[in-house]
Design a protein around this nucleic acid. Structure first.
Lengths: 185, 185, 185, 185
DNA sequence: TATGAATGAGCGTTCATTCAT
DNA sequence: CATGAATGAACGCTCATTCAT
C-alpha cells in the first residue's frame, strides 16, 4: 500500500474515533507508519489531508453506488438500485460514513471539496427529473426530493450505529419503501 | 440579560460561524462582554460550555415544538403540528439549527447531554405508536420511522441554508407531504 | 479569635501542606472563614501575608525560647536552656517549624522580615561570646558557631518529621550533647 | 552541550535566582536557547524538570564526594575526607547548593527523587557504624548523627553565601573540627 | 525521498487583586 | 468594616509545521 494510502487510512480512523482536533498529526504519522515529513510532502497541511480524505471517500462512494447502474431500467428500479447500494455501502463502511456524516458540514471542508460530493447527485437528479416527466415522482423541487431521500438514507445508518442489534435486511427494505413512498406521486 | 446568557449567546454564534476549535475562549469573553474568569466561574471548561449550550438549545426546541400541542387531535394533525413547528423553529433560528446539526454527533457532546435531546422524541414516538395501532402508520420499527422523518426535516433546513432563495412556505408544505407519505401505510 | 489570626492560621496550615503557589488566596479565605476582600483589607498582597506569618512565627519563637531565660546562669546552662526550648518549641509546633524551615530562604521573604529573625540570635551570640572569653567555647567566629548549633537543632526536627517513631526525650538530650561537644573548647 | 543539559543548566540558574513559580517555562526556553516544545519533548512537565535537576545534582554531588574515597583509611580520615569534599563541592557550586537546600523539602520534589538523594548517605552511615563499633563515635542513633553533621555542613555554606568575605580555608577546618567533636565519643 | 527533532505561536485555564454592594 | 463576583494578565502546555540530515 502506498504511503499516501497508509496515511489517509490511519487519519480516517483516528479522525472518526477521536475527532479532528483531538488527533495530532504526530499520531497520524505513528499509526500510518511514516514520519511527519512524509505527510507534509504529500499533503500541504492538516486541512488538506482532511479534504483529500473527504474527496477520496466521495469518489469511492460514487464508484460503488453507480457500478453496473442499470441506465435503461425503470425509474423505480434505478431508484432502488442506487439508494440500496448507498445504504449498503455505508453499512459496510462505518468509518467512511461517519467521516462524511460528521465533517461534511464542518468549515474545514472547502467549497471545492464539497462540489466533488455533488457529482454523486447528478444521476440521481436526472433520474428524479425523468420520473417527474413520467408523472411517477411528485412535483416538488428536485433538489428537495434528492436531499430528503439521501438524508433519510443516512438516518438508517445512524440508527444502526446507535443500535447494532437492528435486523438489517428488513430495515433496508423498509427504508427503501419509506423513501419511495415519500417521493412517488 | 444574565452574564450566563451573554456568554452562551456569544459562544453559540462564534462556534457556529468559526467552528469549535477555531474559537478561542478569549474571543467568547470579548464578544460576551465579560472577562475570561467570569466564563470559568460559570462553566468549568470549554467542553462544559459547549454541552451547556447544547442542552439549553434542546430544551428550547422541545418547548417550542410542543407548546399548545393538540394532544387529542388526530395522528395526522399531530404529526403535521410537531414537524411543522420543528421545521419553522429551525428555519427561524438558523444558528440554533446549525449548532445542533453540526455538534450533536461530535465527541464533545457527552452521552448525558445527548439523553436530554432524546426527551424530545417521546411524544413523537407515542404519536407514531398510536398511528400504528390505528393502522394509519406503516408497520416499521418506530425509531426508524421517527429518525427518518426527523432527518428529512433537517434536510429542508440545510437546503434552505445552502440556497436561501427557496420559496419557503411551499417547501414546508411539500416537505410535510413527503414525510407523511413516507410513513403512512 | 480575630479575623487577622483566622486568616494567618489558615494560611500557615495551607501554605505548609500544599506549598505557597499551590494555595490560592480564595482557599485561604474559605478556610479562614472570611471573604477575599477582608484578607486584602488586612494584608496588601499574598506576599505581605506570607511575610506577616513569617514575622509572627519568629516573634512567637523568640518569646517561647527566652521566656524565663536564666540570664545569670552559667554559659552551659544557658546554652542548654535556649537550645532545649527551641527544640521543644518546634517539636510541638511542626507547622510553624516547616513554614520557617521551608520558606525562610525563599525569595518571597524580604530582607526586612529576615532581620526580625536575626533578633533571636542576639542573646545566643552574647552567650557564646561570654563563653569564649571564659575559654569554655572554641575560638571560632561566633556566627559560625551559632549557625552550626542552630541548624543542628533543625536537623533533629526534620528527622522527627521524617520518622515520628523516634524516641524523643532521649534524642533531645543526645542532640544537646552533640551541639555542646561541638562548640565547647 | 546537549539540549537537555542546556535546559537543565538554564533552569537551575533561573529557579535559584528567581524561585520556581517566578520562573516561566518560556524564560527557561529563552535562556536555554531552545523552543518551548523542545523542553516538553525532553521533560513531560515543569515538575518533571525540577525533579530531573534535583536527581542530577544529587548524582553529581555523590560522584564528587566519593571520588577517590579512601575506603580503608581510619574513620576519622574518612570522615574528614567526605565532609571536606562535600563542603568544598557546595562552596564551589553555590547554585547547586541553593537548589538542593531550598527545594529538597518542597512538595514538588517527589518521594522517588528524594530516595535518590539518600543513596549518598550510605557510605557515611557505614563509616559512622564502624566508628561506633570501634567506640570512637558516640552511641547515638546513626541517622541522628549523620543528619546533624550534614546540616552542620550546610550551615557553613549558607553563612558563606550570606557573607562572602569569610576566610574560607580556616572556616572549613574549623567546621570539620566542630562536626568531629560533636560526634566523637 | 523519508525522517523526526526542533520550533514557537496560540490555546485553555488559573488566580491575585479590585470594587460595588 | 466585610464580602465575593468579576476581571484579565500570565502561565503551562500542545501541536501544526519546518528543515537539516
Amino acid at each position: 500500500m502506498s504511503k499516501r494510502d497508509q496515511i489517509m487510512d490511519a487519519a480516517l480512523k483516528l479522525f472518526v474515533q477521536q475527532g479532528l482536533q483531538a488527533t495530532p498529526m504526530s499520531q497520524v504519522a505513528r499509526e500510518g507508519k511514516t514520519g511527519m515529513g512524509t505527510i507534509y510532502n504529500l499533503f500541504p497541511s492538516k486541512e488538506a489531508l482532511v479534504n483529500a480524505i473527504y474527496v477520496r471517500l466521495k469518489e469511492e462512494e460514487a464508484i460503488f453506488v453507480f457500478e453496473n447502474f442499470p441506465e435503461s431500467a425503470s425509474v423505480r428500479e434505478r431508484f432502488e438500485f442506487c439508494f440500496g447500494r448507498l445504504t449498503r455501502y455505508f453499512l459496510e463502511n462505518p468509518l467512511e460514513f461517519q467521516f462524511i456524516d460528521r465533517f461534511a458540514l464542518s468549515p474545514v471542508i472547502t467549497e471545492t471539496s464539497r462540489e466533488v460530493g455533488s457529482r454523486l447527485f447528478e444521476p440521481v437528479i436526472q433520474m428524479l427529473a425523468e420520473g417527474q416527466s413520467q408523472r411517477i415522482i411528485k412535483e416538488v423541487p428536485i433538489r428537495q426530493l434528492a436531499y430528503f431521500a439521501m438524508t433519510g438514507c443516512s438516518s438508517l445508518i445512524r440508527l444502526h450505529l446507535a443500535d447494532p442489534e437492528l435486523e438489517l435486511e428488513a430495515a433496508i427494505q423498509a427504508q427503501l419503501g419509506l423513501a419511495w413512498d415519500a417521493i412517488k406521486s
